[in-house]
Design a protein around this nucleic acid. Structure first.
Lengths: 130, 130
DNA sequence: AGCATTATTGGTAATTGTTACTATTACTTT
DNA sequence: AAAGTAATAGTAACAATTACCAATAATGCT
């Protein structure tokens, strides 16, 4: 008897699976709060951390943590203007990890993230800057 | 008349250039404090941010920000045990940015970071786990 | 050199994202 | 149904970072 069923955890995981925007803990909290008025933000953080430890979810590092229901490694795009994070269809090249090894390093994985302007923000910039 | 000379900013930049450990703001503060007893942590943060905006310094994203005096893009290795960050000699492939473009995205750059155990921590683990 | 202007600092307070704590709630087994 | 104990809600604590503001100091002018 170790891990119990929890309606909150289920809903948090479901909410994460239903979106592709790599939400923060706050975003998930905001989405669930209307339907679960007694939900606590701490519960969201606690369960996301637990899900990440269990390997059901990936945590993306950054000034504020974002979460991804896709656990197989893949590449991300991050808009430097609005902060949105999305997936890219660039294949994950696991062989890079071997290239990075050496000097006694143990390489487990890597993260590849592109930065720039998302379509929406690229348009905005065009109109505003003239 | 816009940007003035500042002894503090010079020292902060110099301290960053003299190391390869990608220090945090706190680490730079700790290094300079003995020689500059009146230095304020806020000043370190403020100047690092400014240097980053001016493109003299790169800010590495993570739960706590680290700084790099090398501004040309290159790859990093981050030890998941001790948190140390170091440089890797894997060449930066700028052509990836073109591959990542599409759907109206404007890709400016990318970041490639490897995760695993640094040599020291890999050894530690070996001895401790038996 | 002296003075006026204003970027920069130091010190502290405020903010933000996240974690810890604890009494209460609610799964699960018997 | 009762006992045992994960998990929650609510709040407090915490750590990293930013904002604020009076004092300081770099710059430009005379």
């Amino acid at each position: 008897m170790q891990q119990r069923f929890s309606y909150q955890r289920e809903q948090i995981y479901a909410a994460l699976q239903q979106t592709t925007e790599h939400p923060t803990a706050e975003m998930i909290y905001a989405r669930l709060k209307p339907e679960m008025p007694r939900l606590s933000l701490g519960t969201v953080y606690r369960n996301l951390r637990q899900l990440a430890q269990d390997g059901q979810v990936t945590e993306l590092s950054g000034p504020v943590a974002r979460f991804d229901p896709v656990t197989r490694p893949h590449t991300h795009f991050c808009c430097t203007r609005c902060g949105a994070v999305s997936d890219l269809d660039i294949p994950y090249d696991g062989s890079l990890d071997q290239i990075a090894a050496g000097d006694g390093r143990h390489v487990r994985q890597h993260s590849l993230t592109f930065y720039g302007l998302c379509p929406a923000c690229a348009n905005e910039n065009k109109s505003n800057s003239k």
